[in-house]
Write a protein that binds this DNA or RNA. Structure first.
Lengths: 112, 112
DNA sequence: CGGGCACATAAGGATATAATTATAAACAGA
DNA sequence: TCTGTTTATAATTATATCCTTATGTGCCCG
């Protein structure tokens, strides 16, 4: 994952309603209207949260008749790297971090 | 972690500059002015990012004379639960999720 | 003391986010 | 086709975020 993809993932997770949606979808699939009645927010609001989670590929959707059932993308969810591993990835691949690693910072250093 | 604390943690991580700061601090401690020269943004901007990371207890600071050296809170960082574990925690402890789990969601309510 | 350096905080502005209402699109069934 | 239901998108508004410049605070040293 690039730094941009990583921050986008965390942004998608940085909302209480979206976290609760993921928790509910980890138990079973739900349609949009069920989530509306659970959270007490408008249908478009739920739809927007779902869209953000789909952009990060965190959930799948299954159309059945006029309903759309959402479910957790378990393959992706369970394979997300641990926090320490994510930072290791940044150190290894982020150009700015790699560059800073091998460069002397430009502020006046104590003891020099 | 409560749902609010979890979303606050993810919000703190949902920024490329803050992710890079964490990556740099995982290698060694840095002072504010070093980060300014690395990122090419203003000193107050760095200070605000640092403040946000401190609010989530992700970094420590060590004062030495007029400098403040920041470092990764490794004890916290390495003990952060995995993504699947976080969702399990939400399912177990979030009141709204727990309630929804034992309630039949209704879509179109008749008579309204 | 007082000046200079490092960091924190405040104020202001541009952009992003998340909610709402209104509307469009897709589908089922009479 | 017409009607009702479900979901997606558009427009709007309020709030949050992130940057800048300006200013305040704390420490070192002359």
């Amino acid at each position: 994952m690039t730094t941009e993809e990583t921050s986008a993932l965390f942004k998608a997770l940085g909302d209480q309603t979206r976290l609760r949606i993921l928790a509910l979808l980890s138990l079973r699939e739900h349609c949009n209207c069920e989530l509306v009645s659970i959270f007490g927010i408008s249908q478009p609001a739920v739809s927007r949260h779902i869209a953000r989670l789909k952009e990060s590929r965190l959930i799948h959707e299954r159309r059945q008749g006029q309903w759309v059932y959402y479910s957790l993308n378990r393959a992706l969810w369970e394979q997300l790297p641990s926090f320490p591993h994510m930072v290791e990835d940044l150190v290894a691949h982020d150009p700015l971090v790699r560059h800073a690693k091998t460069t002397v910072a430009q502020c006046s250093l104590p003891g020099e």
